[in-house]
Design a binder for these strands. Structure first.
Lengths: 130, 130
DNA sequence: ACAAAAGATACTAATATGGTATCATTATCT
DNA sequence: AGATAATGATACCATATTAGTATCTTTTGT
């Protein structure tokens, strides 16, 4: 069980850094700050731009800045970008083994735990991290 | 984020089935009950035997039974067998980026969430599932 | 025009998960 | 004793996900 993956982590830290910085931030700067492979973080930033978390500027003097204030960026949204639907609750069992999903004691308990985690994740903003 | 993996799920259901059954249970019976690939579930049961959750009997009339009462088997232990340390809280960052892990706001919050989930997982026994 | 930035996209590598195959060992029954 | 029915051990293969690279295009400021 891994709550967040590497690219989510990189993304969050990049966003935090950009949020703290008043100026536009280049990939170069982030590479230096975070020590993350350049092409990898480029891809991450591009995704964040596509998903409208960041705004990007091409050409000399270009780079990235936030598109939304840090208090309105929830880490669950960043997780969703890189990890898809965060809580799956997929049942591995075929219908005839687990005829009634709703009554499966195991699923029920796991779902509760997942819902709790989700609820907490939904409350954390970038602002609360910087 | 996937709370449990397939083999953990299979293991839990096998244990539940064995717990409900008064008699010794063979792989064959479990395959019929759960519709899971035979060699795969064999491996799972072997691991459960090694970890002393189940007891196994070779030869004709052999099979598996519980070694511990269902009220004392916690699903977190089964998860640990198949998924290793359940909550990792690994930080992907090098020391110079994240100089003080304890003060990293992100880690702190994630750890809290993970600890909550863990606490809940630690309370669920097989007995509570059957 | 040129250089410095990001955009797009396709590819490769590593790891984890899910699953098979095969042979050895042990116990029971006749 | 030998056949049979069970698990033990172990090595292997397949697939999916995650992590990371490479390359070429586009935009923009000087």
């Amino acid at each position: 069980m891994k709550l967040i993956t590497r690219n989510t982590d990189y993304a969050l830290r990049s966003i935090c850094y950009i949020a703290r910085s008043k100026n536009i931030v280049t990939v170069d700067e982030l590479v230096k700050q975070l020590g993350v492979p350049r092409p990898f973080i480029r891809k991450i930033l591009q995704q964040l731009n596509k998903k409208r978390v960041l705004d990007s500027f091409k050409g000399q003097g270009g780079g990235f800045k936030l598109r939304t204030p840090p208090g309105k960026i929830y880490i669950i949204d960043i997780m969703r970008i890189f990890q898809g639907q965060v809580v799956l609750n997929t049942c591995f069992f075929k219908k005839d083994v687990c005829p009634n999903k709703n009554r499966c004691a195991l699923r029920k308990k796991l779902r509760l735990i997942e819902e709790n985690a989700l609820k907490q994740l939904k409350q954390i903003t970038i602002a609360s991290l910087i």
